[in-house]
Design a protein around this nucleic acid. Structure first.
Lengths: 341, 341
DNA sequence: CGTTTTTCCGTAAACGTTTACGAGAACACA
DNA sequence: TGTGTTCTCGTAAACGTTTACGGAAAAACG
């Protein structure tokens, strides 16, 4: 069914070498010949077989994205990633690169999946998300010399790979700023308990801002929980029952915020009235919850596009004339003020 | 860096043919030899290069999923698809098949992307979503003889491909049933204006149920809109301003329901009090909206797994002993009763 | 012991490309 | 006309596998 370059060559009474050169825009082919080849290719509906190309060129022209649902993330996964993926894929597609999505089992670590992709050369590069503070995946890829980029920073692997992250530190800082400006002094912080790096960054910003305002950090107002609704539900009462009750809470995750608000409701505490709530990393849920939740929003789709660019710039095969570069960027979040604070 | 089967053979003083047969579990290889090969493979960290395999075997061992954002679907795409994808990918991974995600530009039709995948043989089969009532993609794939399966039915292509769909007809029917049982007689239906097949199925069920209850179908209570929040916002007033105002609305899409509720709010009409609202196809938003929205929920993750099975069963290379089968299934939705009706 | 069968392995072709190399023809130049 | 250059194309190797085929050695059989 599928026509090969041999069919095309036979049909034109030409060698396959010439056909290939004509199609690939090489200079050493007569203009008229090229024309004939292109026309015949269109007529016979020829497209080069990707497996053949990959084998010969040692490049698959596809990029793997590793997405791993968090443990306990039952019903609906990460609405977070779809717009990011959209942007990533759009930019990759411009370079005729395809996107392979590799998901892990929720909770199980992704190493094996990753190894398989790398060792069987299924992709030319990898994009990692949900970076941990110390991340074996990064160590492994660095050691293997396999190209990759990450959404999110990590302490692993040094500065040898492109990374794009949200400025969680600044978000934590600004959230405190805003709350202090509105008269709050007892501000709680709730973040995921996993080793996810953004939890640390957020807390750094939170602490820094408190310090700047001369407010002492109260460990009783900082709590870690499972990174889902249940986690937020379980851990929120803990900070609320501390000796000197907080008047504001910053949640470092939307799902945890929703669970937290449920806990608050059961305690008869109304966000937006009795307590201020700010969420870091907005999702559609924040907009539709009642009360609507003030949140910091990242530009996910542009970030996807940007990370694709950064990854490509680091690949010798796609880098510009100045050669491969390793770019690292941290993007700000935009505050979306709503009712909850 | 990457070791090839040649390295392995040289290291063992064996021919590459034997190595390959040993690794692939062929019978005609000595038990001890096989053992040696397997050990060496582990030691040299050998995995077969996928491009080489693909070329030789004429199969890429990857499946393409075509995901197309709806036009105007700006910020957050389809939270709908993540759990489905999770299930799909999980089952495929069990067969060592990888998942390639191909997204179209929002609004632009996917034909070219699809052609590219098919003609360059990047994938062994395709999974389609967002099936239209008449769907060129299905026509194209059928004609090309390329294996595929669909999430959602279509009128195109006959019964020649596996498909898995939600029973929108029954959901429309049950929604009416429930509302009638609660005393409603004037029930509006709002659905997307695109040629998406589920819109038709839903309306069939809606009409059937009305008929059964002896209620005449009022065209003024049926409206089509853009399949997003804005669409719901724009079109809802239209049914509300019909001569005899409805006491209930069934939305055939969650985003449209949210926009519709916004329009209702602006008219001073409170869902759950002044009007009953039911949504077909639950998403997390329905659960967090205020009031929480009664909705029909599909089992997305199991559906993803099931469609993978159905697709595999239709592929000669993966079918069981009884040969390839074309399975088609329609799955029920589960009603999640909340506050809005 | 001779013959047949089985076991095991090496050889080589094939999958569909791309590309280094070289050669013939055409052309330019003196 | 002789020599060097440019243009254009064909040849063949290479990428890393799998697998059909055949043959040598070993085993089984009479």
């Amino acid at each position: 069914m599928a026509s090969s370059i041999h069919d095309l060559a036979r049909h034109l009474n030409i060698s396959i070498g010439t056909v290939s050169r004509a199609l690939n825009g090489r200079a050493d082919v007569n203009a008229e010949t090229r024309q004939r080849v292109l026309e015949a290719a269109r007529k016979l509906n020829y497209s080069p077989n990707q497996s053949g190309r990959s084998l010969r060129q040692g490049a698959t022209r596809s990029i793997a994205f590793m997405l791993q649902p968090h443990p306990g993330d039952q019903q609906y996964g990460e609405p977070f990633f779809i717009p990011f993926l959209t942007g990533l894929q759009a930019r990759l597609a411009e370079h005729e690169l395809d996107l392979m999505v590799v998901m892990g089992e929720p909770g199980q670590y992704q190493q094996e999946r990753l190894r398989r992709v790398v060792e069987t050369r299924r992709a030319d590069a990898v994009v990692l998300a949900n970076t941990r503070r110390e991340d074996d995946r990064i160590d492994y890829l660095s050691k293997a010399g396999f190209p990759f980029a990450t959404l999110g920073r990590s302490q692993s692997g040094g500065d040898t790979y492109p990374s794009l992250d949200i400025d969680f530190e600044r978000a934590g800082d600004e959230a405190v700023d805003r709350l202090v400006a509105r008269g709050h002094r007892r501000i709680a912080a709730i973040r995921p308990s996993l080793d996810l790096n953004f939890g640390y960054l957020f807390l750094d910003g939170y602490r820094k801002a408190l310090k700047r305002h001369g407010i002492e950090v109260d460990p009783g107002l900082i709590a870690d929980g499972f990174i889902n609704e249940t986690g937020g539900y379980q851990v929120t009462p803990r900070v609320m029952l501390s000796k000197d009750r907080p008047t504001a809470i910053i949640f470092n995750n939307d799902a945890m915020a929703l669970g937290g608000c449920k806990a608050l409701a059961e305690m008869g505490i109304r966000p937006g009235h009795d307590i201020a709530v700010i969420v870091i990393v907005d999702t559609p849920l924040c907009r539709y919850f009642s009360p609507t939740l003030t949140a910091f929003r990242p530009a996910l789709e542009p970030m996807g596009r940007r990370l694709a660019e950064m990854l490509l710039a680091s690949l010798p095969a796609h880098a510009g004339p100045e050669g491969p570069r390793t770019i690292r960027e941290v993007w700000p979040l935009e505050l979306v003020a709503r009712e909850s604070d």
